[in-house]
């Protein structure tokens, strides 16, 4: 999704993840209509997101941040946790391994024990994506993941997102202003302006679409 600031892109993310309730219309994923009143239900339905302004659990370790993402997949109850039943040990070990594996995919293993708040900016963005992945989504919603990144970091991000799609079989919905990234990896682009969709199509089509050029891209796209 691309478009001017204020076009409604993050609003759509909020609608998809039940942060806002739609006045009309519905959200349909793989044929089923998603209905829910709280954002955590969206996660259960397979939608996971990152935020425009990084929202990490700053005083928790990197590993713990990711483990929070595994919450809904855990099974042991509060009592079983307190009483340290075998299910606790079993699941915690599994979660620990899964979380470390996830970090490995992103080359962030060495950061496992750092405070999330102390990571460099680029790593913080990656951690947010990691955490979202932990929830095992069908669709990953990334809100301006390349914001503030230098060109080489953006390049790395592009590779990562491709890996996501292939290795994890996840659909990725991206909000971005970085056109190199967008044109580079997106199969389909939707252009928003003032709350309406003004164009949809492949990168080629969008690049040459007059409305889009006027409203957003400028002629140098």
């Amino acid at each position: 999704m691309i478009g001017q600031n204020g076009a409604g892109k993050t609003t759509i993310f909020n609608l998809l993840t039940h942060v806002y309730r739609p006045n009309s219309g519905s959200v349909i994923l793989e044929g089923e209509e998603l209905r829910g009143s709280r954002p955590h239900k969206a996660v259960a339905q397979g939608l996971s997101r990152t935020f425009q302004n990084i929202r990490l659990f700053r005083n928790m370790s990197v590993l713990d941040n990711i483990k929070v993402g595994y919450l809904q997949q855990g099974k042991y109850s509060i009592m079983e946790g307190i009483l340290r039943f075998p299910s606790y040990w079993r699941e915690e070990k599994a979660i620990d391994e899964k979380a470390k594996d996830l970090l490995r995919v992103f080359d962030m293993e060495s950061y496992a024990d750092y405070y999330a708040g102390n990571l460099p900016y680029g790593q913080q963005r990656q951690l947010e994506i990691c955490r979202a992945l932990a929830t095992n989504p069908r669709v990953l919603l990334l809100d301006e993941p390349a914001a503030g990144m230098n060109p080489s970091e953006t390049e790395g991000l592009m590779h990562r997102i491709n890996t996501l799609r292939e290795e994890f079989s996840i659909a990725v919905l991206l909000i971005e202003h970085d056109m190199k990234l967008v044109m580079g990896i997106c199969d389909k682009i939707v252009v928003l302006n003032y709350g309406c969709v003004i164009a949809e199509g492949s990168p080629e089509e969008i690049r040459n679409n007059e409305d889009v050029i006027n409203a957003y891209l400028g002629s140098e796209a």
Partner: peptide, 18 residues
């Protein structure tokens, strides 16, 4: 962990399934 994540950022926590 869920409880502490709420302290840290309840909006993000909700977005993680808490």
């Amino acid at each position: 962990r869920a409880i502490i994540s709420i302290r840290e950022d309840d909006i993000a926590a909700e977005a993680c399934g808490v």
